[in-house]
Simulated scan of single mutants.
Amino acid sequence: MDLDLGITGPAQSDDVYHFTGRVGGRPDYVPEHIRMMTPQQRLDAIIGERVLRAFPPFGATLPCVCFSESSPEHLTFLVKNRKVEPWGIVGTRLSLLELGGGAVAYVPDKQFESFKNTGLAHWAVRVGTNSTWMHEREWRIPRENGEIPLNSIRAILIGDASWRPSQIETDEWVTEDGEICPGPGEVPHAQPRQDYPALWRESAIWVWDDKSAEVIKYPPPNTLWCPG
Rank of each mutant, 00 (worst) to 15 (best):
L43H: 06
I46V: 14
F115K: 14
I156M: 10
S162A: 13
A45G: 11
T170W: 10
Q41S: 15
H18D: 11
F58P: 00
Y218R: 00
P10N: 09
D14Q: 15
Q194S: 11
G102H: 08
P56S: 08
D160F: 02
Y196Q: 08
A213T: 11
D160W: 00
D195A: 11
R26D: 03
Q111V: 04
N151I: 01
G88D: 11
Y196S: 05
I158C: 06
F67Q: 12
E98I: 09
A60P: 00
N145T: 12
I158W: 12
A60V: 02
E69P: 01
P57T: 04
I158V: 11
Q12K: 05
P56K: 14
T8D: 14
F58I: 03
R50W: 01
A190I: 00
S152Y: 14
L62Y: 14
E73N: 03
G178R: 14
A45W: 07
G21H: 09
P72V: 05
K217L: 07
W139S: 01
I141W: 10
P31S: 03
W208T: 01
K110R: 09
V104E: 01
S70P: 03
P192K: 14
N130Q: 07
T8N: 15
A190Y: 04
R93M: 08
L52I: 03
A213Y: 06
T8A: 12
S152R: 10
V16F: 13
F112C: 04
V65I: 13
T38H: 07
S203H: 00
F77I: 03
E138N: 05
W225C: 15
L120H: 05
V30W: 08
T132N: 12
P57L: 05
V90E: 04
L224W: 04
